[in-house]
Amino acid sequence: MARAVTTNRVVISTAAAWLCGFLIFFPILWMVLASFKTELEAFAIPPSFLFFHWTTENYATVQERSDYLLHALNSIIIAGGSTIIAMLIAIPAAWSMAFSPTKRTKDLLLWMLSTKMMPPVGVLVPIYLIYRDLGLLDTRVGLTFILCLGNLPIVVWMLFTYFKEIPKDILEAARMDGATIGRELIYVLTPMAVPGLASTLLLNLILAWNEAFWTLNLSTLQAAPLTVFIASYSSPEGLFWAKLSAASTLAIAPILVLGWFSQRQLVRGLTFGAVK
């Protein structure tokens, strides 16, 4: 067989792949290491890779120096809230387009997609002024609302592609067997829809958690999520690298874990089903 895989080839490709993976992951690893160093060691040249005095004091000072927990809570409320609201609005819409399509469904979907193409900076001015006049600047409600709108097209799209894959024949079969609509929903449709719902939820949670245009422009202190909190470290004030690293590690850890779970759905969600 021409395609028999030789051991040599496996060894070489394994080594190359691990090297590439390590290089790409390195900045994150380096940041995590720095978060366990003292400020002096984090700044030291030559740098120490593993043999330094491991300490967790940075994680304690991050909370003292600035109210980390407040910003983490803001992130959870804003990302979680905007995702849940977007799901509640999108599920019926995607459901209706997938199961009861009309001639205009395709145009409608593409139009929704095109709203996502609008650069946020194009509407920064009116949104800022409206928020200023309504007292929504630096509020969780304001940020939740804008992130919800920003992600709504993606949520509808992802759900639509998942719902469309639920075979309609199964519904007919269930009806033939005399299932009522209630039973049909609970025993046939829900189990088939849950994986799609879960991955949509996960991906949009990630997108909302990392959103850094509206959060930077519309919040400063009270409602500031972690993106803005980390940005506050950009103004240098003495030795702060280890603390920056600790704060950053805390900010990305939960989402990195979620992200790793949702990596397969990522492609589908972000390419609007164009690549599967």
């Binding site: 990392n210 980390i230 920056l244 990596q263």
Partner: peptide, 20 residues
Amino acid sequence: IVRLMVIAPFFVMPTVSALV
């Protein structure tokens, strides 16, 4: 595992990656 390492930067919030 390699794939997890390669994909990780995409999940890092922009302000963190820029400052790191």
